[in-house]
């Protein structure tokens, strides 16, 4: 039986990907950011997951123009890194798991989540920067990946509560998969940041740290945060944090916090990273 063994959250700033690709990780500006991920890279070597369900948002690379899906599940054999205007990132092709993805799609739709299924799409920095942070520079990714793209760009996004319910349904869908897979679920994006208008550059460390504090065992409070409050308190792009709630809900009631990292800034953004182990 498949089992979710860890939940990981991280920001997915494009500039982190650029610094990584251009070998700037030891420069004064970037070193504190990358040092924050040394722990998890060691963790992943011993955990050796088979599959990651990776909650991220597409940044107008594969969707958001002609179609705007609220929840889109990637069912393909592979996903190529997208060209976001300066050439594709020089990272390996992302390998999917169509059989497991199809199982998840069936179970989730039956459980009332009307997903969009993606049989072909490229994946942008939202998905590949977290992979780089967790695994470093590798000739091929050591895991299969099921991308789950969430609309966090066009209002209204799904609510925090809806994301929570989806995560809870993912937990059950994974459990009902017969193959013995070691599964991780990642929530990406955030933390506070605003990338537009005269309020650009907004950072709210009090909001971010309260979010991190409550993510273990005061999630009732996080589920009640409205879209308005996310945008107001954490910036127009800070609402990406709803994707962390999918990850957290998929871990069940009790978790152990294994690692936490918070740093300001990476480009325009507050970087947050947390690792949980579900406690059965």
């Amino acid at each position: 039986m498949a089992k979710i063994t860890a939940g990981i959250a991280t920001s997915h700033v494009p500039a982190i990907g650029a610094a990584f690709d251009m070998d700037k990780t030891q420069e004064e500006y970037w070193k504190p950011v990358f040092d924050g991920y040394e722990w998890v890279k060691e963790f992943q070597k011993t955990e050796d997951p088979d599959v990651v369900i990776l909650c991220y948002n597409d940044h107008a690379s594969a969707m958001m123009l002609d179609v705007v899906p609220t929840f889109a599940l990637g069912c393909a054999e592979e996903f190529e890194p997208a060209d976001e205007g300066w050439g594709a990132r020089p990272v390996p092709t992302v390998v999917g798991d169509p059989v497991f993805a199809s199982h998840l799609a069936e179970q989730l739709v039956i459980d009332e989540f009307d997903l969009t299924l993606m049989n072909h799409m490229d994946v942008d920095h939202g998905l590949t920067v977290p992979l780089s942070l967790m695994f470093g520079k590798v000739p091929e990714w050591p895991v299969r990946v099921i991308p789950l793209a969430i609309n966090v760009t066009q209002f209204p996004t799904p609510s925090a509560e809806r994301c929570w319910q989806l995560g809870a349904a993912i937990r059950d869908a994974v459990k009902s998969y017969p193959a013995g897979l070691n599964v991780q679920i990642w929530g990406t994006g955030g933390m506070s940041h605003q990338l537009q208008g005269p309020r650009a550059g907004l950072i709210n460390p009090e909001f971010d740290n309260a979010f991190l504090d409550k993510l273990s065992d005061r999630t009732d409070e996080l589920r009640k945060i409205t879209r308005l409050e996310f945008v107001r308190e954490s910036g127009t792009e800070g609402i990406e944090l709803i994707m962390w709630l999918i990850m957290r809900a998929a871990l069940g009631d009790k978790v152990e916090e294994l690692h936490r990292f918070y740093h300001v800034p990476a480009s325009n953004t507050a970087v947050g990273h947390i690792v949980f182990r579900p406690v059965d």
Binding site: G85, Q154, G197, N268
Partner: peptide, 23 residues
């Protein structure tokens, strides 16, 4: 929306920080 607009600033070779800061 900025996620579309950065395709333009990326084409110009601007960092995202420069594009965002210009607002």
């Amino acid at each position: 929306n900025i996620y579309f607009l950065v395709k333009l600033s990326n084409t110009d070779g601007w960092s995202a920080q420069r594009a965002v800061g210009s607002m």
